[in-house]
Amino acid sequence: MQLDSILFYLFAVQILFSALMTITRRNVVYSAVWLISTLVGVAGIYLLQGAEFLAGVQIILYIGGITVLFLFVIMLVPVSEESKQRRFSSQLWIVLIVAVLLTGELGYFLWQGADSFQMGEPTPPAEIGTVTTNSEQIGQVLFSEYLLPFELASILLLVAMIGAVVMAKARPGAE
């Protein structure tokens, strides 16, 4: 129990600090590195909650897939030039409205206390040396109760992939 709490606060501090660094760094590569740190922290929180499968997938997909592609693109941009440019943004009002809404929501729930959340049953931490069945549970739920959303998501991804291929394909006579 003690170790759990210590680890939770460690991960929480890591996530918050890295997230702050992600949005404040001028150099995009630094932002990406801090983003990786944030995502690792989130995976750690998943592990603490007993959601091992989610933690593994979080790292494989978000870090191994998405952030690697981010870095791939960023590396083709001359970072030193780009980070000297003044930032421009025409979305100040939208950002402000969203930020106020989000703060309001968070404040409301903080004010209401823990009872206002609908929380699932916390899984008791597994005994050391035993193997949990987290992955099996996810598989069963995903292919029974949530089959339709699951398949819809896969179709959406397929459409996005075909769209990307079509857009990237060289048009005849464009050379």
Binding site: V29, V33, I36, V40, E52, F53, A55, G56, V57, I59, I60, I63, G64, G65, T67, V68, L71, F72, M75, V131, T132, T133, N134, S135, E136
Partner: peptide, 24 residues
């Protein structure tokens, strides 16, 4: 652990970052 093989794949995909960042 019940994500043994996923864990190894996750670690190897984190390892790629070392190469990319080192090269950059």
């Amino acid at each position: 652990v019940n994500i043994g093989i996923l864990f190894i794949l996750a670690m190897s995909s984190l390892g790629i970052l070392g190469l990319i960042l080192g090269g950059w």
